[in-house]
């Protein structure tokens, strides 16, 4: 922790997040994100090896529902909100590769 963020890392992250950044934005984000990470250095000095992480504030378990069918949405109500449709399906430009 604490290593200053590199511009290439920011570019890589933008790609992962499906955002395209201009050169100026790259520059700015590298600096601004670096500041936040630098602030986060106050955590890095802590020895928390034996501390369990908390992802949920409360420890609820086994929240389940019965396997009972409920009404689905009306198809046209949903498709009418879509940017592009065809044959009752959501249409997208060509997909470049198989799903991972």
């Amino acid at each position: 922790m604490g290593s200053p963020l590199r511009r290439e890392e920011v570019a890589h992250v933008a790609k992962l997040a499906r955002l395209s950044l201009s050169e100026d934005e790259l520059e700015l984000f590298t600096e601004q994100l670096g500041q936040v990470l630098e602030h986060a250095n106050d955590m890095s000095s802590l020895d928390l090896k034996d501390v369990e992480p908390t992802a949920h504030p409360f420890g609820l378990i086994n929240v389940v529902r019965d396997d009972v069918v409920r009404a689905s949405l009306e198809r046209n109500a949903v498709l009418s909100q879509a940017p592009d449709t065809q044959d009752d399906r959501f249409a997208v430009p060509r997909i470049m590769g198989e799903a991972p």
Partner: peptide, 10 residues
Amino acid sequence: IHGADRSLVD
């Protein structure tokens, strides 16, 4: 998938 112009999702 390869060579397609457009895809439709269900």
